[in-house]
Design a binder for these strands. Structure first.
Lengths: 248, 248
DNA sequence: TCACCTCCTTGATCGTGATCATGGCTGCAT
DNA sequence: ATGCAGCCATGATCACGATCAAGGAGGTGA
C-alpha cells in the first residue's frame, strides 16, 4: 500500500521529468549539501518541482506574496526591481544551485520580479516547511544561514564594484565572476554562452549598453576575450582577474 | 545558593552598567523582539555584554575569525572593507538594535572591519549558542531569518542607489533613511547629530567628499535642511523623500 | 595664546561614461 | 525573397561628478 503510493509519486515525478535531490548533480552545491542521505530524503519530500519556465516567463512578480524559496535546477534567471514608473534595475542573475527569493522573507513579499533568461527549471521549497525542517536538521539550518550570509557578502562586493570601479573593471569583474561560477558548476570556465542581453549586463553593472559594447570590443582587441554575439571565449582569464582588482 | 549566584551575576552586571534584555528599551526592535518573557530569559543568558568601545576602536577587524554576532546597544559603528592596499570602502553604518556580523557566517571570518564612530556599547551573541537556541525557539529563528532577509533587501536598495541615482538623490536618500531610522528608535526624525564624517558619507555613497559638501550646501540653500558641522536639522522631510525617489 | 591637525568648504578644470544618433546584423514570419 | 523587430556596434557630443588646489573652521595640547 505504502509501496503503491510511493510508486505513484515516482511515476508522477518521472512524467514531469523530475528527479530527486539524491540523484541531482547539483546536490553538492545546493541547500541540502550538508545532509546525510536519510535527512536528504526528508528534505526531498518537501520540495515541489515545477514545470519549466520558458524564456521571458516570470517565476514570480515584485510584490507577490512570499511563500517559497526556489533552487535553480537548470537555466538561468534575472531579478528585476522596479521603482516608480519604468525604472527597472537588474539586481541579480541566478545560476543552477542558487537560491532565489530569500530577500522576501522579511516582508512576506518578493521585493523584485524574477524572470527566466532561457528555458529554466526550478525546485520550489515552501518556506514554512523549510523552516520547520531546519528545526530538526541543524545542518540544513546552518546551510540556510550560510547561504544568506554568502549573499550578503556578495552584495557587499557588488556595492564596492558599483561605487569604486571603472567601467572596464566592472566588466572584467563580471566576466571573471561568471567564469568562476561556471567552473564551480562543472562547466568550462573559458567558453560559455551568455543568457542575458547586453542591456541586462549594463543595467546590472550600472553602465549604458553602449559602454558595455565598446568595452567588450576593446577587451577583444586586447586579446582578453573573444566575443561573438552571446558566445564568449575567455582567452586570458589571468589578465581579466588582474584588471578587475586593479586600483584605479 | 542559586540565589547567591544570581545576585553575584546581577552585581557584576550592574557594575558594568549592564542590564538585561527584559529591561532593554530596544527589545522591541532587537533580535528577541518576538520572544515571550520566559524565552527571552534563555536568550538573555547567552549574551555577553562588552565594555564600551571608544570612538575609533574596532569591534573586530577584517579577516578575524567569526564567533559572534553583535547587537548595537548604544552609539554607532561603520563597516569598512579593504581590498588591496588602501582602497577602503564603507559598506554599512550600524545604529542601536541592529545586528552586526551576519555576513561572516559563511566563511567563518568577518569580511570587513567594524569601527565605533562614537562611544558605543554592544551585546555579543556567540553564534553557535544562538544557532542552538534557534533550534528550540522558532520565533528566534524566524527573527534571525527576517533580519538577514531585511539586510538583503536593504543591500538591493543600496545597489539601486549606487547604480542609478544622481549625487543629489543619493544624499537625499541617505538623510531620509537616517531620519527614518532615528524615528523608529524613538529619536527625533528632524534633528540629530551625524556620528560619521563627510568622508565616511561620501565613501559610503560612492561620492567625493567635495561633492557631499557642495550638495549639503545646496540643500541648505533650498531650505531642505539646516546643517552645521555634524548637527542636522531636517526642515522639509517631504521634499527630501520626493527628491530621493525622483526619476533622473 | 599660539601652533597644529583634522574636518569641512569652495573654486577651477578635467575626464569618464551617458546620451543622442545612426547603421548593421540576425532571426523570424510571411 | 522581403520586411520587420530586437539586439548590437560605433561615432559625436555633453554633463556630472572627480580631481586638483587653496583656504577656513573648530578642537586640542604645549
Amino acid at each position: 500500500m505504502a509501496v503503491h503510493a510511493a510508486n505513484a509519486v515516482d511515476k508522477r515525478r518521472s512524467l514531469l521529468h523530475e528527479t530527486r535531490c539524491q540523484n541531482c548533480s547539483l546536490s553538492s552545491l545546493c541547500l541540502p549539501l550538508a545532509l546525510e542521505v536519510e535527512d536528504m530524503e526528508q528534505f526531498d519530500a518537501i520540495i515541489r518541482r515545477r514545470a519549466p519556465l520558458k524564456k521571458g516567463e516570470s517565476l514570480f512578480r515584485q510584490g507577490n506574496a512570499f511563500n517559497s524559496v526556489y533552487a535553480v535546477r537548470s537555466g538561468s534567471l534575472k531579478q528585476i526591481t522596479t521603482e516608480g514608473s519604468g525604472d527597472d534595475q537588474v539586481t541579480n542573475f541566478y545560476l543552477p544551485s542558487e537560491l532565489v527569493g530569500l530577500d522576501g522573507i522579511d516582508e512576506q513579499a518578493y521585493p523584485g520580479s524574477v524572470i527566466a533568461l532561457e528555458t529554466t527549471t526550478v525546485c520550489e521549497i515552501p518556506f514554512d516547511r523549510l523552516d520547520s525542517l531546519s528545526e530538526i536538521l541543524p545542518e540544513l539550518r546552518g546551510q540556510l544561514y550560510r547561504s544568506m550570509s554568502k549573499e550578503l557578502r556578495d552584495d557587499r562586493r557588488m556595492m564596492r564594484l558599483l561605487s569604486r570601479k571603472t567601467a572596464d573593471q566592472r566588466l572584467a569583474s563580471f566576466f571573471s565572476s561568471l567564469s568562476d561560477r561556471f567552473r564551480r558548476r562543472g562547466y568550462s570556465p573559458h567558453s560559455f554562452r551568455l543568457s542575458m542581453s547586453r542591456a541586462d549586463i549594463g543595467n546590472y553593472l550600472g553602465l549604458a549598453v553602449e559602454t558595455v559594447s565598446r568595452i567588450l570590443g576593446r577587451f577583444q582587441q586586447q586579446g582578453l576575450v573573444e566575443v561573438s554575439g552571446r558566445e564568449v571565449n575567455i582567452l586570458n582569464l589571468e589578465a581579466l582577474v588582474t584588471q578587475a582588482q586593479e586600483e584605479h
